[in-house]
């Protein structure tokens, strides 16, 4: 929570934690569902055997100096779906330094996580470092979406760095970082990287069946491609002029893959 140390405003530190387990009756229980500060969690109506959790931003955040963490742990036989009530908006804060947002996800063999939050919007003047780490056991299933929007409508973006590291059975499956906005290394908006596109996203689907039936690479329109990773997974990488068009491409990809 917000604290003052020696008269200097420091940011908020908060952790939200979800644990999902097979309830033994064909459904998923949530023995831990603990929000904190700006990170509130709500269990919403489940469909079928899945538990559904909504991440509700009780405050607009993260602000400069904040350090927020979301953790989810999905056991074997459990199926957890996590969404968010609204887009996350990174804003400049009073505290010094960049804000940090950590996502730590773990899925056991036979468990499945569908991580489908709303966009992350990097507002002008904000500085945010997002670190997402996903550890999957062999036999785990995952649908993971992340979307970054550079600036609100017509606004310059803030500085946004986001690293996604996915490990499968302890080996690296996907490791990707994007760094955009003022102060990012040169060329981030040039013809090799974003070329003026203001929304970028990834959709990752990990599924044991891909070992036996690997997916082929294909284009999804002109600005998105689906490609098999070196492992039982496919990744859709997309750029778009805005959040709406990005979501349209990723939704189509999701429908095609599921």
């Amino acid at each position: 929570m917000k604290s003052r140390v020696d008269g200097v405003t420091t940011g908020v530190r908060a952790t939200a934690r979800i644990v999902a387990r097979d309830d033994g009756r064909g459904g998923t229980s949530l023995p831990v569902l603990a929000g904190e500060g700006p990170l509130a969690l709500r269990r919403t109506r489940a469909t079928g055997d899945e538990a559904r959790v909504m991440l509700v931003g009780a405050m607009s955040g993260p602000l400069g100096g904040d350090h927020l963490t979301v953790e989810a742990d999905v056991g074997g036989g459990a199926l957890l779906h996590v969404g968010s009530a609204a887009a996350t908006l990174a804003l400049p804060g009073q505290a010094k330094g960049e804000a940090r947002y950590d996502v730590r996800l773990e899925v056991a063999a036979g468990g499945e996580l569908r991580w489908l939050p709303e966009q992350l919007i990097s507002a002008r003047g904000s500085e945010l470092y997002v670190s997402s780490r996903i550890d999957l056991a062999r036999g785990a299933r995952l649908v993971y979406r992340e979307e970054q929007v550079l600036g609100r409508a017509g606004e310059e973006p803030g500085r946004l760095t986001s690293r996604l590291t996915v490990r499968l059975a302890g080996r690296p499956l996907l490791d990707q970082e994007t760094a955009c906005g003022p102060g990012a290394p040169g060329g981030w908006d040039g013809p090799a990287v974003l070329a003026g596109h203001r929304a970028l996203g990834q959709l990752l689907v990990v599924r044991p069946e891909f070992t036996e039936f690997p997916a082929g690479a294909r284009m999804l329109g002109e600005r998105a491609a689906l490609t098999p990773l070196a492992g039982p997974a496919v990744l859709v990488t997309a750029v778009a002029p805005d959040a709406l068009r990005l979501r349209r491409v990723l939704d189509e990809a999701l429908a095609a893959v599921l």
């Binding site: 990707q176 994007t178 760094a179 974003l194 070329a195 690479a217 491609a225 990488t237 997309a238």
Partner: peptide
């Protein structure tokens, strides 16, 4: 090994798949 940078260029990744065809 994660000490090594992982910076990616989305357009290079996307257009490479198209170019290959």
């Amino acid at each position: 090994i994660e000490a090594l940078p992982a910076v990616s260029a989305p357009l290079l990744e996307i257009t490479a798949e198209d170019h290959a065809t």
